[in-house]
Computed example of a mutant assay.
Amino acid sequence: MRDALLAIDPFIRLLAKAALYAAGVGLVAMTLVIFWQVFGRYVLNSSPSWSESVAVILMAWFIFLGASVGIREGYHLGFDVLMYVMPPTGKIVLRTISDLAVLGFALAMMIYGTQLLQGTWGAVIPTLGLSVGLSFLPLIVGGGLSILFTVERILRRFSGLENANAFAIAD
């Protein structure tokens, strides 16, 4: 298992880096769209009708992609206060409980996000002419990445590969 994890690490690291960069691009794009909306409303006195819908969709993408990378890097909430007083075995147990809770939440994101996508596919966003179901795609993709990164964390922990810098993507 250890060798398999080490073999797929470059791929998962690249995937996390791509998700992080995509989230950053989405944040910048949303900022530009909102700037255009404010400029149009207050300077041109003609606010673009599409800007709010696009901004909300971009926001969903960068939030869910960024959150999944945060899971991989260990930046999400956990049992930090107890970690300082727990023995090593207790830390492993608490981290695993935290990861299992995240895994359950991410699975629910994918399942219910898929149901929402299917249920709203026939409706159209009036200002964009696109399916409302597309707005739930970030929930599904973010949930899938969160599942992948959480399973990786658990497997690394039980293969003896976990350390403070194991998930860093900044290299």
Score class of each variant (00 low, 15 high):
residue 1 M to T: 11
residue 2 R to G: 14
residue 3 D to G: 05
residue 3 D to E: 12
residue 4 A to M: 12
residue 4 A to S: 12
residue 4 A to H: 07
residue 4 A to D: 09
residue 10 P to T: 03
residue 10 P to E: 00
residue 11 F to P: 03
residue 13 R to M: 10
residue 14 L to A: 15
residue 15 L to C: 13
residue 15 L to N: 00
residue 16 A to R: 02
residue 17 K to N: 10
residue 17 K to D: 02
residue 18 A to Q: 07
residue 18 A to V: 14
residue 19 A to L: 08
residue 19 A to H: 06
residue 20 L to D: 15
residue 21 Y to H: 13
residue 22 A to C: 09
residue 22 A to D: 01
residue 24 G to A: 03
residue 24 G to L: 03
residue 26 G to R: 03
residue 26 G to P: 09
residue 27 L to S: 10
residue 27 L to G: 14
residue 28 V to P: 00
residue 28 V to H: 02
residue 28 V to D: 00
residue 30 M to L: 08
residue 33 V to H: 00
residue 35 F to E: 00
residue 35 F to Y: 04
residue 39 F to C: 02
residue 39 F to Y: 13
residue 40 G to R: 02
residue 40 G to S: 02
residue 42 Y to H: 09
residue 43 V to Q: 00
residue 44 L to A: 14
residue 45 N to K: 14
residue 45 N to E: 12
residue 46 S to K: 13
residue 47 S to N: 10
residue 47 S to V: 12
residue 47 S to W: 00
residue 48 P to R: 06
residue 49 S to V: 13
residue 50 W to E: 01
residue 54 V to M: 08
residue 54 V to A: 13
residue 58 L to S: 10
residue 61 W to N: 08
residue 61 W to M: 05
residue 61 W to C: 08
residue 61 W to D: 04
residue 62 F to S: 09
residue 65 L to P: 07
residue 66 G to L: 08
residue 66 G to C: 10
residue 67 A to L: 14
residue 67 A to Y: 13
residue 68 S to W: 04
residue 69 V to Q: 01
residue 71 I to Y: 03
residue 73 E to H: 09
residue 73 E to F: 03
residue 74 G to E: 01
residue 74 G to A: 06
residue 75 Y to S: 15
residue 78 G to F: 01
residue 78 G to C: 01
residue 78 G to L: 01
residue 81 V to F: 13
residue 82 L to K: 08
residue 82 L to R: 09
residue 88 P to C: 08
residue 89 T to L: 15
residue 90 G to A: 01
residue 91 K to M: 13
residue 91 K to W: 06
residue 92 I to C: 11
residue 93 V to W: 08
residue 94 L to P: 00
residue 94 L to E: 04
residue 95 R to V: 05
residue 96 T to P: 04
residue 96 T to W: 04
residue 96 T to M: 05
residue 99 D to A: 15
residue 99 D to H: 14
residue 100 L to A: 11
residue 103 L to K: 03
residue 103 L to C: 06
residue 104 G to T: 10
residue 105 F to I: 12
residue 106 A to G: 07
residue 106 A to F: 06
residue 107 L to F: 13
residue 107 L to T: 15
residue 109 M to W: 08
residue 110 M to G: 15
residue 114 T to C: 04
residue 116 L to E: 01
residue 117 L to W: 02
residue 118 Q to W: 02
residue 120 T to W: 01
residue 121 W to C: 05
residue 121 W to M: 11
residue 125 I to V: 15
residue 128 L to P: 01
residue 135 S to L: 12
residue 136 F to S: 07
residue 136 F to I: 07
residue 140 I to K: 06
residue 142 G to P: 06
residue 143 G to R: 07
residue 144 G to Y: 03
residue 145 L to D: 00
residue 145 L to Y: 03
residue 145 L to H: 06
residue 147 I to G: 08
residue 148 L to F: 07
residue 152 E to L: 10
residue 153 R to L: 10
residue 153 R to S: 11
residue 153 R to A: 12
residue 155 L to V: 13
residue 161 L to Y: 00
residue 163 N to L: 04
residue 164 A to K: 14
residue 164 A to W: 05
residue 169 I to F: 03
residue 169 I to A: 06
residue 171 D to E: 09
